[in-house]
Design a protein around this nucleic acid. Structure first.
Lengths: 254, 254
DNA sequence: CAGTGGTCTAGACCACCAC
DNA sequence: TGGTGGTCTAGACCACTGC
């Protein structure tokens, strides 16, 4: 193997493995040779191979299971039509489930999502974002989303209890037209959206649900819906694996 | 030291160091104890400390220099007013330098940027994004941006040569009102913006310019400006360290 | 039980920095 | 020249998987 010194060995091994994966030599769902085997193959120590594999993990190219081995992931990039999903919203799909479904179907995959609804006291950041006092009741709509049964997104929607309690907004099935339509019917029509996008390390919970590796990152989107009188009526916090998603925005200027 | 087994030692050491940094025990610009020293202190091997430090590096908390040591970074989060910067654009600042300056001054820091302009053949992705043929002449405006002389952003703007050559768009100083105003004057007023946001590992060049560590990620923004007849007239590719920036978007709905 | 990755150690050599 | 991190190795023990 042409392992040279100037570039560290583990990086070179990572490059070789990445190339092998991209060329199809190791196809999706195939299992890489064991680390000891790769070590012997390239004439390096197992530690070195291990470090190389950890690079591929952080890139989302492979997935490791203790005792099983290292498998190649299928990773079609998912586009989130951030702006468009909410502008077409007045129509049939509420910018929520409908939009996600469209995004996943566009990849020829099958979308699925679970929703849990509960009423809880507002945590500090949520209270601040919604202009409430900490501990005020808020309705939490927790969604877990899957593509071909692979978890790809987690989204928590927080709505002031005052607005949502006793309405379809506090039901698991929020009815036709989705959340957005309900807000309008309840006299809290959203007229403006703001989103803040940041990247951070996945929490333990996200690592577990999103099947992320240690060292992987997520994109966190704080999505706020505002009424015409500039009151925030919905805060949705989306978490998605950073390697898996592209966010698309668009707006007029001039 | 209370190093327990269930959670790996390097993670525990990383947590301790992170806490020490956040508590101010190791203040900004201070140098952490040497790895050998930390190893002795916590009763672990140097490798373990090294792995712990690499976690903090990937989070952008510390910066390592060979032969010098590991120093704590100052990391104020920079907000990019993605939408607003271009909507106010018709006014005094062109959504470019002006907007960046505003963002940095908002943090009490001093902005600075270099611009280089050249005409080059269009690379494949650029040609595709601008609806040109590969190799067609394009004007490349390359900008490097700094906050308090720390590099924080790299942006390449690509404009079809047909539009830009021989105009102020091909000058380093594009004049009052910035780029956007020039497009309008040249009969190519931008009326719509699209942006695609993705996260990827920093390239070698970015690692060098943005002073990023191995294993760190950048946010890449593909920003396209469109005219009223839906022609793309400008493609700007921004790269920023993922740990340093938050992107803010906003738009009306309904 | 055998195989896989997770993690740790001790020791080593190197490149780079500052004095 | 001494100190710092970068990297590598050989060997080890563990947890988890699947037979």
């Amino acid at each position: 193997m042409p392992i040279e010194t100037p570039r560290s060995q583990y990086r070179q091994v990572a490059d070789l493995l990445r190339a092998a994966i991209e060329s199809g030599e190791y196809g999706p769902d195939s299992v890489l040779p064991a680390e000891t085997e790769l070590a012997a193959l390239h004439g390096v120590s197992r530690q070195t191979v291990n470090k190389a594999v950890s690079i591929l993990r952080s890139e989302g190219l492979v997935r490791v299971e203790r005792g099983r081995g290292t498998t190649v992931r299928k990773i079609p990039t998912i586009h989130r039509a951030s702006t468009a999903r909410y502008q077409q919203t007045a129509r049939e799909d509420g910018g929520g489930r409908g939009a996600f479904d469209t995004e996943i179907k566009a990849l020829g995959m099958t979308p699925r999502s679970d929703t849990e609804v509960s009423t809880v006291p507002a945590p500090p950041e949520v209270a601040e974002a919604l202009g409430l006092a900490e501990g005020d009741p808020v309705v939490l709509r927790l969604r877990r989303m899957y593509a071909n049964d692979v978890p790809v997104q987690r989204a928590d929607s927080w709505i002031p209890g005052e607005i949502a309690e006793g309405t379809p907004l506090a039901e698991v099935d929020s009815g036709p037209g989705g959340i957005i339509s309900r807000f309008a019917e309840l006299g809290h029509a959203q007229t403006r959206i703001t989103e803040s996008v940041r990247v951070r390390r996945a929490t333990d919970e996200e690592q577990s649900f999103l099947q992320l590796e240690e060292e992987q990152f997520v994109i966190e989107i704080w999505h706020t819906g505002w009424t015409a009188d500039d009151r925030p009526v919905e805060l949705a916090i989306h978490s998605v694996p950073a390697h898996l998603w592209v966010l698309d925005y668009g707006w007029p200027i001039g």
